[in-house]
Nucleic acid binder design. Structure first.
Lengths: 135, 135
DNA sequence: GGCCATGGTCACCTTCTGGTCAGCAGCGGA
DNA sequence: TCCGCTGCTGACCAGAAGGTGACCATGGCC
C-alpha cells in the first residue's frame, strides 16, 4: 500500500468566503510557488531553485498546506529513480485571475503611495503573455 | 497643532506586488471592516457593533494599519461633542472588486471541497446589490 | 462632585508562522 | 563501501499577530 502524504487535520478555515480565500492563499511563499506551478508541473528540486531564499523544509510545508487546500497536486512517478512532481489543480488554476488582480492592485497601491521604487517586477503575468499563442 | 494619529514606522511591505496586496488586506478583521466602510463612513462605536467579537483594542489596531496603508481615512469632527469617523479612501474602494472576487472564489473553493455547510453567507456583495441605482 | 459615554493607550500573554539545523531513507555511481 | 542526490521529517526557536484586562482623557449631564 502506497504511503500517503501525511495529512495534518487541516484546521478549519474561516466561515466567511473572502476570509477563507485569503487564508488559503496568504502564506509567505504561496503566491510565488503557485505562479511557478501555473507554468506546469515542477519537481521539488526545481521549485527550490525557482524560489530562492526558501528552505526546503518551509517549501515542503507550504506545498503541503496548498495540497491540503486542494490548490496543488503531488504525484510520485514510479520510475527508477522515482520522481515527485507538484502541479496546480483546476482549483489552483482558478486562482490565476485573482493573483493577477492582486498583482495589479499591488502596483497601483505602490503607485499611490509613491513607493514604486520599493517594488519588484510582477512575476505573475497573464497566461498569454507567458505562452504566446501558437499562431 | 492637531495631535496626529500615532504613526508606527509602517514596516516595509513586500517587494512583489501580489504579496504586497495580500499583506495589506490580510488581517484577521480587515476584510470585514473594509466591507462595512464600503457602505459609508462609520464611527468607532458603530464598527464595534458591526463587527462583533472584536475587541476595541484590536479594532483600532486594524484600523490604524489600514490607515497607514492608505485604505481608510480617520476624521475627527470638531463638533460638540466631537466625533471620530472612519471611511474608505479611493484606494480602499478600489479593493472592492478584489474582495468580491475573493468572496466568490471562497465559495467556489468550499464547494469543490464539499464544505459549503461550514461557510457563512458572503457579506460582501456587489455595490449595486446594496445600493440600488436611483432610477 | 459623581457618573456615564466615547475614543484611545499600555502591559502582558498566547498562538501561529516561518525559520534554522540536524538527521534519515532510497537509490545510483565510483 | 562510501559519497552524493532527492525528498522528507522532527526538535527547537524567534517574531509577528491577535487577544485580554486595566486604565486614561475629554466632555456632557444630573
Amino acid at each position: 500500500m502506497a504511503k500517503l502524504t501525511k495529512q495534518l487535520p487541516t484546521k478549519r478555515l474561516p466561515m466567511l468566503p473572502a476570509e477563507r480565500a485569503l487564508k488559503v492563499i496568504s502564506g509567505r511563499w504561496k503566491a510565488v510557488i503557485l505562479y511557478h506551478l501555473f507554468d506546469g508541473p515542477r519537481r521539488l528540486s526545481v521549485l527550490k531553485t525557482l524560489v530562492p531564499n526558501i528552505t526546503q523544509k518551509v517549501l515542503i510545508q507550504q506545498l503541503r498546506e496548498m495540497e491540503g487546500h486542494g490548490l496543488i497536486r503531488r504525484e510520485i512517478f514510479a520510475e527508477i529513480p522515482s520522481r515527485v512532481e507538484y502541479s496546480a489543480t483546476r482549483l489552483g488554476l482558478s486562482l490565476e485571475p485573482i493573483l493577477l488582480a492582486l498583482c495589479e492592485w499591488g502596483q497601483h497601491h505602490a503607485d499611490e503611495l509613491n513607493e514604486v521604487d520599493r517594488l519588484a517586477d510582477c512575476i505573475i503575468r497573464p497566461r498569454q503573455a507567458r505562452q504566446p499563442a501558437i499562431a
